[in-house]
Amino acid sequence: MSVLSALSDGAVIAKRNLIKIKRVPDLLVFTTLSPIMFVLLFAYVFGGAIDQQGGGQAYREFLIAGIFAQTVVFGATITGAGLAEDVKKGIIDRFRSLPMSPSAVLTGRTFSDVVNNVLVLIVMSLTGLLVGWRIRTSALEALGGFLLLLVFAYAISWVMAWVGMLVPSPEVVNNAAFIVIFPLTFVANTFVPLNTLPGPLRTFAEWNPVSAVTQGARELFGNIPPGTPPPTGWALNHPVMYTLIWAVVVLAVFVPLANAQYRRSASR
């Protein structure tokens, strides 16, 4: 199997998934609507309480990177749910009966979900700008911030790809993912500074990769005001490095697992 035809097969599959985004724009609307709602709710409901002197402005700036991180992580469930739906409808069987590259369905799927995430990030950045979020670094660093979010989301997509091939229905993928993703995205520095968390939760949050992505993005967007005390723990002091290590390890484990599960999968 040549790499070239594997790539072209992946592109065919990615195109197919993107057509779905085009045909069902509601999908994109709803994946962006809830983060927009989150931005507004957190910014105006909690903002004032957490940041009394600033009238919420500083908190809103702090918050945006957290919401970005949470949204792209949740976005990865689309990968799993989409694959589970394809298994259920027998479309994976059809693909498996074709002489195509066996890895193309998953690479195509995870790639189109990156495109989906780019669209979501654009919509959310615009909302962020409206509520007062600003990028205070160079364009290049800001781009680095977005790339970091996308790379992390890509790795989580592969975890979800494995889950999607393993469990029988899109609903189960969603429920299973929420049970794991909610604590991961809340027991972190996404919405509150870590010094407010009690001991064990704080330790968890300090090593939680979601905290690292958030911290890394905040640094790259320049959303950490001068004079803020440095975070504790190695991970949060090297957030970009720590995030990339996580992404590489997750990919090394879950790309082969998901591919093996694809070959075994069966429609029900």
Binding site: I19, R23, V24, K89, G90, L98, A104
Partner: peptide, 24 residues
């Protein structure tokens, strides 16, 4: 297969064109 495995978001043409591409 036993259950029609067409992609319902694609048109009839896109479904077949995709399969043709995957047969190279």
């Amino acid at each position: 297969g036993q259950y029609a495995a067409v992609d319902e978001y694609l048109t009839g043409f896109e479904n077949l064109d995709m399969i043709g591409r995957l047969y190279h």
